[in-house]
Write a protein that binds this DNA or RNA. Structure first.
Lengths: 331, 331
DNA sequence: CTGTTAGCGCCTTCAC
DNA sequence: GTGAAGGCGCTAACAG
């Protein structure tokens, strides 16, 4: 296999521990022997085995991250943020898709445990309290991004869904809309409820009744498809504006509109959520609520670092901001 | 720490080796002791240490994947494909961004080596022959997806860039266009050259001169920005159609057009490359060349599995297909 | 300053 | 069928 400490020890006529010390810049080591060993090691192409090191130090310098799918641009940005901070801090990232299947998620977490990861990050988990029993025994810090189960488990990073959603709907109301619809996502119960709540709060504050037929929760796992499916209900309910669970839902909705000759924003105003990169490149450019996704990923990893450092770490809730573009217009 | 073989051996009043055998369904083991030990292990929450196992078996069940950034939807799909096959085969995936920086890429690969990954997958590497010396010594199988250095190193998965590009430009020529531009990507030299070659071949075949002013290689690392920057050159060269290096470049170009009142496809026809998911949701929907990205990821991981299994594995070049939508029209 | 010893958690011959 | 012993590659006390 690859060259080991022993190999280079033999070559240098010293003991393995001397080699170890030299390579780790241990204080009590001869300057010349150290230099000699180091050059020898390089020459022999020695690369220390992280697995052997982990076994003894009981630290793997490894983070496990469970996501739904990296094909979701929101998730991708989380990953980017986490990876950035992790890499800088010397950690490697295990990435595993759960495809939003709670069972797979549990399986992945168990794999991570067996790999003795130093910490775990889970995006959009729907597991919730199941974790309590499974993970409380483990000493592994775990932080959740956009946990989808009600109740605060462990350390979490949230976004101000309700406030953001309310801002979106406030904006529509200001534009004179009264029949405002909502197209939601059933597979992300908590964010969905929070955004729906913001929607309702905005309406109530403006003394507009909340009408069930204006709220659509299409039974699909695909964001785009949900948007397209929700359109029928919006038309039937005579909505003049729609707030969508996220940008991809809005994009699906808009495509459906185009096919039916419904003009955006002349006939229908549309607001999304997330501000994914493409949002500003659409024609018309999408009005949406911006979420600091990369920042959330960074923060998650920074929380991990704090936790690993034994610090007390607070849950974080980041704010989001309305970005008005071209899909919303005065009624 | 966590419970070990010894702990459960003590609890069961047997030796550690017996426990090991029981848990691994070794043949020579008492049926009842086995059952007893298994239930005991579950009860005590025993999770075997993959790191200890790796140290002894010299196999980590781990794959290292180096990417530019997961925020690129093309890369994200590669990752999805790899992850799918890897997970099924029992492998975990280390993911690391290089941000398209060759130096970082080398650093990441070294980290992977120290972690003793069983294999490495690199996306859009610009390293090339540097690998020869560095990795030839290692016994780790390595497969490259869309290698960006000329010359075939190791095992690779390619796409028929030239054929796809030619199909795109053929399509524009059929529509009556004669002044067709190309906006390329300098940070992906090989794919860019291949697509540019396809562009040139199509023109030559139609007896249309290749004019340098119709070829733009904006000095930027952002796809969208390249598209926007390239527009000026296209306008100056009086292009009536443009073939872009990829979809995101096309999207940037289209945005620039909108700002200048240039209508797509009436004033300018545009073709992209990749067929990222959003392409069909744009208005007008983007004409492009579809790349089987997820399939490429799967294939990469399957090649790894073959290699790990000692099989002789062939490089693969997948074909792509023109998808005509709404951004191209008769001149 | 350097060598020796022990052991991280597990598997794998060997004995019994 | 089960136990004892050795070792994977490395670090961390101890000695010297």
């Amino acid at each position: 296999m690859s060259v080991s400490l022993h190999d280079i020890a033999k070559a240098a006529n010293v003991s393995p521990s001397t080699v170890s010390r030299a390579l780790n810049d241990h204080p009590r080591i001869g300057t010349q022997t150290k230099a000699h060993i180091k050059s020898l090691a390089k020459e022999m192409g020695y690369i220390p085995s992280a697995v052997a090191q982990s076994l003894i130090t009981n630290k793997t310098w490894t983070i496990g991250m469970v996501i739904t799918t990296v094909a979701d641009p929101v998730v991708a940005d989380f990953v980017d943020g986490v990876d950035e901070v992790a890499q800088t801090a010397g950690y490697s990232l295990f990435l595993s898709n759960s495809r939003n299947d709670p069972q797979r998620e549990v399986a992945v977490v168990e794999t991570f445990q067996s790999r003795r990861v130093d910490a775990i990050i889970v995006v959009a988990s729907r597991i919730g309290s199941t974790y309590s029993s499974k993970l409380d025994q483990l000493k592994v810090p775990i932080v959740l991004i956009e946990n989808q189960k009600h109740g605060d488990f462990y350390h979490s990073i949230f976004i101000e869904n309700t406030i953001g959603a309310k801002a979106a709907v406030d904006h529509l109301i200001e534009l004179g809309h009264r029949r405002i619809g909502f197209i939601g996502a059933v597979d992300r119960p908590k964010s969905n409820d929070e955004r729906l709540l913001g929607y309702k709060m905005a309406l109530q504050q403006a003394n507009i009744p909340v009408e069930p037929e204006l709220i659509s929760l299409p039974d699909s796992n695909d964001d785009f498809e949900r948007g397209q499916r929700g359109l029928a209900e919006m038309v039937a309910a005579q909505a003049t504006a729609v707030f969508c669970y996220n940008d991809r839902t809005a994009i699906g909705l808009i495509k459906g509109c185009e096919q039916q000759g419904i003009l955006i924003p002349q006939h229908l105003s549309v607001v999304g959520f997330d501000d994914i990169q493409i949002a500003s490149y659409l024609r018309p450019a999408l009005t949406t609520v911006r979420q600091p996704r990369v920042q959330m990923g960074r923060l998650a990893m920074q929380m991990i670092l704090g936790l690993l450092d034994g610090q007390a770490v607070q849950n974080q809730t980041l704010s989001c901001e309305l970005v008005v573009r071209q899909t919303t217009a005065r009624k």
